[in-house]
Design a protein around this nucleic acid. Sequence first.
DNA 1: AGCACGCCGACT
DNA 2: GTCGGCGTGCTC
Length: 749
Amino acid sequence: MSRFTPNNAQSCPQVLCIDRTPYLAVAIDTPLRQVFDYRAPADVTVGAGFRVWVPFGRRRVVGVVVEGRDQTEVPANKLRAAFEVIDSEPTFSPDLLALLTWAAEYYRHPVGEVLTSAMPVLLRSGAPIREEQILWRLTALGREEALAKLPARSIRLRAIAEYLTKHEHAPASEILNATESPSSALRNLEERGFVEQFAREKTDEIPPVSVVREGPPLNEAQAAAVERIQKTLGTFASHLLYGVTGSGKTEVYLQVIESVLARGQQVLVLVPEIALTPQLIGRFRGRFDAPLAVLHSGLNDTERLAAWRDAREGTARIVIGTRSAIFSPLLHPGLIIIDEEHDGSFKQQDGFRYSARDLALVRAQRLGIPVVLGSATPSLETLARARKQPETLSHLPYRAGSARPPQVALVDLRKHGATQGIATPTVMTIQRHLDAGGQVMLFINRRGYAPVLFCPNCGWSAHCRRCDAHLTVHARGRDLVCHHCGSQEPLPPGCPNCFADVKPVGQGTERIEEAIQQLFTNAPMARIDRDSMRRKGELEETLARVNRGEIRILVGTQMLTKGHDFPKVTLVVVLNADQGLFSTDFRAPERLAQTIVQVAGRAGRADRPGEVLIQTEYPEHPLLTLLLTGGYAAFAEGALTEREQSGWPPFARIALLRAEATDQQAPLKFLQDAHDLAVDFPVRGVKLLGPAPAPMERRAGRFRAQLLIRAPSHSPLQKFLSGWLPLLPMLPEARRVRWSIDVDAAELS
DNA sequence: AGCACGCCGACT
DNA sequence: GTCGGCGTGCTC
């Protein structure tokens, strides 16, 4: 029953005694791929997972004990003693520590950096793990008079008073989150003498949880999914919840979460970076009266540490966050949910290049708990796994309510004339939907006004000085911006080559916005992309206007697809489906299909039938015809067959060795040397492809190249890497480049 | 990554 | 004379 054993000092003394050894192996935040041995301080409880202050070179740093050791290979003249142990209990429980060291090994990343990345910033610099908790409660005066005396218009103050009537006491963060109030509201109540703070007496009791509101009745598929997942609570199982948009995946999550909470366990929910919307959190809060810890990029250091502590001490019953939340400590883990599991943001793209989705499976397996991967467009990896174990596949094929699936049609851009990228039949369809009172959404995966600035006279086009890329025309034709390095310059008055007039070529969101305004003068519209939604809260504001019906036409990028509902949208237009149709990256078709299906899923959610138009120059392309005739499932079947035949994941494992330098030849030379070195480590089935320049060789002034390693499965890949990688730093060329290894690389660029 | 040591160029 | 450029070496 170790799963239910609290990992704090009071209740689990045996954890502290096993490592009473003379030496400690300590992981330190440094790119060095090793741990460092220290003499353990005497007469202090210390062991694996504890943080210690240690001397390191000329510095004093925080390290994490990875294990206790009875002996050390380090010569006595080098060995030093740890200064002090930071807490009276380990920062990392044995199972979390084991997961992290496993991940460091698997992704070939220095263990010190891995452990550091799993800690809130304040813990990295030595803040204590436990703190006397400051709680707020109503004063006697507050209990008697607050609700009676507070004016009705003081909504926040009354909400806080009501909350504290129900909860007796709670930390400020919890109160402010639940009532969506600023901290000034609490101070205001304190000045009125209605509330007071006090230090919590030390107790590990976990607040009771109740269901605030019962959920709606489930349809047959949802009920089957809930039951299938519930049956596996307490054991490892990897579920795929494969539900089309609007089929009620969240309701399935909620029902299963309810069971987990009833078992006294915690739920960890991972969501993609952009989709950490108030919508989902709102659903959770509306359903359960359970403390929720939200880990997102907007938190400051103190808030982050508080959320981390709440997860670790079991106070937070639901922990919801993005990628890095997979490393949240949990006292009583019971379930992990990965929402929109296909989303690329679960894979970290620099430094410690882990996949939170893959680690969720590892963590769940180690803990003996189920994991639920939810998506309308599952990754091929997840689909392949589900094929092997059909008992864990739950399909939600119909939309909740009476909504019918949208009608999808292709618009052949070669046959029809187009104004600014919008084909004539598309214009007519938009008009028809506007006339019928519908809302229209146009999707284009490109920011800015136009992707190219071109001189029709001499053929010149605007290139970035530091990247092998065109500059994008921005701000209605006033600026040139590089989307790869961020450099910016004013638009030249004419061609710098021949002084002729230059012309923006192609369409971005800004230009589509302009075209729509000209074509549909009376329809109020909005544009949603990274440039137009810079200000905080702007996105939410615009989305609200859309859903109130004040906006009739919506133009935007990927941003539109991530987790937002647009119940009044009846027509979705994918303006250019062709980017990615002929990419060198074997995953490009998968990403394109997911994007198209996700965008299309925004149409017709209520009782109105939805319509989807996909503009393309290649209407006969098999990817598009498959999607059109058989939906995502048919596409995925086809793609899986292709991957199997060509030996790509999930039917193989890959790793990518990347190198970059300001010198053009150095990365290629280094990779060639690395390639040549590999003949000394033959592992059956392991093949090296390359080296080759990266698809965009020069980026931000650095030349980049890559070498692909392909193996039939996980273990030969790891076997090869463990023999080969340690020797790379010894190559003379290694010092002239920056290199990194990306295990299970998601993007080959 | 830090951080120090170390050996050559233009400044008060 | 010395401030500082970044090459190279080390961190239990």
